[in-house]
């Protein structure tokens, strides 16, 4: 029997290690910050195209304004007391409405999700109310409480409450059966089962409910303000548009977007705080 002593010749295909290229300091910096650089580039490119388009007359300034005009209009707004009053009113409406929604929906959702019979009774209503476009209720809510801040808070509340409740109910149902056996095995009280198992197990669902709710509450507050025409960022946007001040209007839109980002970040912050027991995704990405 012939024994091959070397692995040479055309019968072998050679697998080589990856070649390491030497990179300059700048290249290495870019690779570390690639994500940040490209995100910023995307944002800058958008505004550049908008600005250049407006300057060149391709983008109609009458409808779309331009970044520089929006910035100038925004700067002028920042000097006005009326503007700050609008921001304050909208923020209060958002904060109170959302807080009430969380306070009501989370405990109710936990209880409804946990007690099977309750969930049988509430499920049809929850699905109905969650499917109902809440802004359709604005005229009715106006009949109840008038055109004041209470109406707008109520619309914000209605926008979020069923969304979070449905997510919470859904989350309770996914609580791990095996962990429930552990709790029962150690004779955990009903209250302890809630605090040690049901609530922490449901939190990821509550958080994703909050995420969806952020969009709903923002839409709720703006539409309610359009409708009431009293005070708030929504009124500012509506008035600017009605008087054909597209730069002011755009500034209002940017402002609402900023509010949305702040709320999203707050939810994300809450998520990281409550879920520090989870393996972090960042670690997985780098390895």
């Amino acid at each position: 029997m012939a024994r091959a002593s070397t692995a040479d010749g055309p019968t072998f295909r050679t697998v080589l290690p990856r070649q390491r290229r030497r990179r300059s300091a700048a290249q290495r910096w870019y690779r570390r910050n690639e994500r940040l650089v490209l995100s910023l580039l995307g944002i800058v490119a958008f505004f550049a195209v908008w600005q250049l388009g407006a300057d060149a007359g391709i983008v109609d300034r009458f409808f779309f304004s331009s970044p520089s005009e929006v910035a100038i209009a925004g700067w002028a707004e920042l000097q006005r007391a009326r503007f700050w009053e609008d921001v304050r009113v909208s923020s209060v409406e958002l904060a109170v409405g959302s807080a009430l929604a969380v306070i009501v929906s989370v405990p109710l959702g936990l209880v409804i999700g946990w007690y099977r019979r309750l969930s049988y009774a509430f499920d049809p209503w929850l699905n109905f109310l969650n499917a109902l476009p809440r802004v359709a209720l604005i005229p009715l809510v106006v009949l109840w409480v008038g055109l004041g801040v209470e109406m707008k808070m109520l619309i914000v509340f209605l926008g979020a409450v069923f969304t979070i409740m449905v997510a919470t109910v859904e989350g309770v149902r996914t609580v791990e059966r095996q962990l429930l056996d552990v709790a029962r095995s150690f004779r955990a009280s009903e209250a302890r089962i809630f605090t040690s198992l049901v609530i922490p197990g449901t939190l990821p669902f509550i958080i994703s409910g909050l995420r969806i709710a952020v969009g709903r509450v923002l839409a709720g507050v703006i539409i309610a303000e359009f409708y009431a025409q009293t005070q708030g960022v929504g009124v500012m946007i509506a008035k600017a548009a009605a008087t054909l001040q597209s730069d002011r209007m755009m500034f209002g839109v940017v402002l609402v977007t900023l509010l949305g980002i702040i709320l999203y970040e707050a939810v994300g912050y809450a998520e990281r705080w409550f879920q520090r027991w989870r393996p972090s995704l960042d670690l997985e990405e780098t390895t």
Partner: peptide
């Protein structure tokens, strides 16, 4: 228990 069944948040 089978599968350890530890509370992941503790």
């Amino acid at each position: 228990f089978q599968d350890a069944s530890l509370f992941p948040w503790y």
